[in-house]
């Protein structure tokens, strides 16, 4: 029979009374934080998504220090001291790729339709995703330092400088992540985000002072190395951790951070608004 009997609803059938929204100031900030919390919950539920920021620095440190340390620096300990800030910067840069991959996956799902149908500032879902990733960058910084300490790495400056070095690395990651966020709006598949971002990050991390002193590099490459944002981040972190000359590295790093935000944040937001 198509005239089915309605099964009684098991719950009490009373519809809840209507509620009245009560708009308050700082909507963008509050909504972004609520959405950042969503990212955090998702991260906590899928700890395997943290492999790129936990296991990768460990593997890179062990392999590079014990395989190349003797050849490059004459002793594994000296090379560890030199390499750790570089590995931190490299992992921070590759760790940013995940936000692009995740957003690209998320955008294909109905949840972003829901966000767009709510009276939420258009930039809040993207800001929330970027802010929520702070925890990933803190984890990468701590896990790199932890394994470094086990291997014998020591910060030779003061605690304040050490904290400043870590904070600079996390800030750099937050600003750089607008690039993969933008890329995620422009390409069709998560795989494409990953591929494109690796193609951008790999040259940045190798044509730099991450693994070797720049004086050994050919002249034509030094021009690139000198403007490479990772070179400046690594230089700044080395200075803050080990007391090597800081030069203008901190300023250049901050300038690059500002540059990433000024260029890629508006591009990403515009692409997000246009996206169907």
């Amino acid at each position: 029979m198509t005239t089915t009997l309605s099964t009684p609803r098991t719950s009490h059938p009373v519809m809840p009374a209507a509620v009245t929204p009560n708009p308050r100031p700082f909507r963008l900030l509050r909504h972004s934080l609520a959405l950042a919390k969503r990212s955090l919950i998702k991260t906590a539920r899928t700890p395997e998504a943290l492999i790129d920021v936990t296991l990768q620095p460990v593997l890179f440190l062990i392999i590079f220090v014990y395989v190349f340390g003797g050849a490059v620096a004459g002793s594994t300990h000296d090379y560890l001291q030199f390499l750790l800030p570089g590995i931190l910067a490299q992992t921070i840069a590759t760790g940013c790729i995940a936000i692009g991959v995740n957003l690209n996956t998320d955008l294909a799902k109905g949840i972003f339709d829901r966000f767009r149908s709510l009276p939420v500032p258009r930039s809040a879902p993207l800001l929330g995703a970027v802010l929520g990733d702070i925890v990933r960058y803190v984890i990468v910084t701590l896990s790199t330092l932890a394994i470094g300490y086990v291997m014998g790495f020591r910060i030779t400056t003061d605690p304040l400088s050490a904290v400043a070095g870590c904070a600079l690395a996390v800030l750099f990651a937050l600003c750089l992540s607008w690039l993969p966020v933008y890329v995620s709006m422009k390409v069709r598949t998560p795989g494409a985000v990953q591929g494109l971002m690796f193609a951008l990050i790999m040259p940045l991390s190798f044509a730099s002072n991450v693994f070797v002193g720049t004086s050994t590099l050919p002249g034509w490459m030094q021009g690139f190395v000198d403007v490479n944002p990772l070179t400046h981040l690594v230089g700044a972190v080395r200075g803050l951790f080990l007391g090597s000359p800081l030069g203008n590295h901190v300023w250049w790093t901050l300038a690059w951070c500002a540059g990433f935000v000024v260029v890629f944040m508006p591009l990403a937001l515009r692409a997000y608004r246009k996206k169907v």
């Binding site: 929204p21 909504h31 969503r38 919950i41 998702k42 966000f115 709510l118």
Partner: peptide, 19 residues
């Protein structure tokens, strides 16, 4: 169009906050 990684309650609370 809910977030599948969040619980039912977390989803509704998130939308309540956004509203």
């Amino acid at each position: 169009s809910v977030d599948e990684d969040l619980t039912g309650r977390q989803n509704l609370e998130l939308f309540g906050t956004l509203l």
